[in-house]
Design a protein around this nucleic acid. Structure first.
Lengths: 136, 136
DNA sequence: TATTATGTAATAAGTTTTGTTACAATTTGT
DNA sequence: ACAAATTGTAACAAAACTTATTACATAATA
């Protein structure tokens, strides 16, 4: 994760939670994060696919949470926006003639998988509500 | 971590552990990982600063572990090569006029810090020896 | 029907990551 | 002393990734 996608997603979801039952526009959300509204819409698109928000087109359109914030755990947010492993990438062309080069990726895979599982378990204990209610 | 630095560092250290008391050259190590030897030397440089390996210049030069592999925990490797937070970056220009935009980075910081601490604690329970001895 | 949003493609700009070349400095063996 | 081999780095190039921007079709409302 060398990007701002998780931070952006949490920001969006927090705003939606702070304004329940209101269709917030991507333009308005973008004004709070201070990024381009297309970036917000792209992220909203991903959050919709994950079942975390619903959006409505047209005049008076916008987005709101798809379910109560206490039912949104942060691992779901992470899953939605992060497609890399915590410990990074593996070297793809390691030497098969070297005992280490030949096996390292399967061994790293065990470690990487275990690490990702740990993170997700941790994030699974935290809800959007926990995060959001810290704000005045 | 959207790079191969952790995987590369672990690969290097595993090779050094598998060949104790031998000065492995960056060229030889590079041949196992299948990357440029300069990349290996750059990583070795960082691992030296972290006190994990020692290198020797000149003919018959190379690198070896600075201490027994059971004394090298993986959080030290992670610290040496990773300078980003697990959950990524934060948006830098959030709107100070918005209650959420104004406070979000300090709140995210708490979450990000806690997450990094969890990962490091986990990696601290694993040693290079644990990893290395999996290889035939 | 005019207006205002979303959804998304295409492209540009910026940043990060990895690869490569080059060479000074160092160490060893002869 | 000298040749050979290696580290350590700088400089730059190439590739990949991230974010910004423009444009516009589609949809929904008043």
């Amino acid at each position: 994760m060398n990007n701002t996608r998780f931070a952006t997603a949490i920001h969006i979801l927090t705003l939606l939670d702070q304004h329940p039952e209101v269709w917030l526009t991507s333009e308005w959300i973008a004004g709070s994060i201070n990024v381009n509204s297309v970036v917000v819409r792209r992220e909203l698109s991903v959050l919709q696919e994950a079942g975390l928000v619903i959006s409505r087109k047209g005049k008076e359109g916008g987005s709101m949470l798809a379910k109560p914030s206490q039912d949104i755990a942060l691992d779901a947010v992470y899953d939605a926006v992060c497609h890399t492993e915590v410990l990074g990438r593996k070297n793809q062309h390691t030497n098969p003639l070297c005992p280490v080069g030949k096996q390292i990726n399967t061994k790293l895979d065990d470690l990487f998988t275990e690490t990702d599982a740990l993170l997700k378990k941790f994030l699974g204990t935290k809800t959007l509500r926990d995060f959001s209610q810290q704000f005045g």
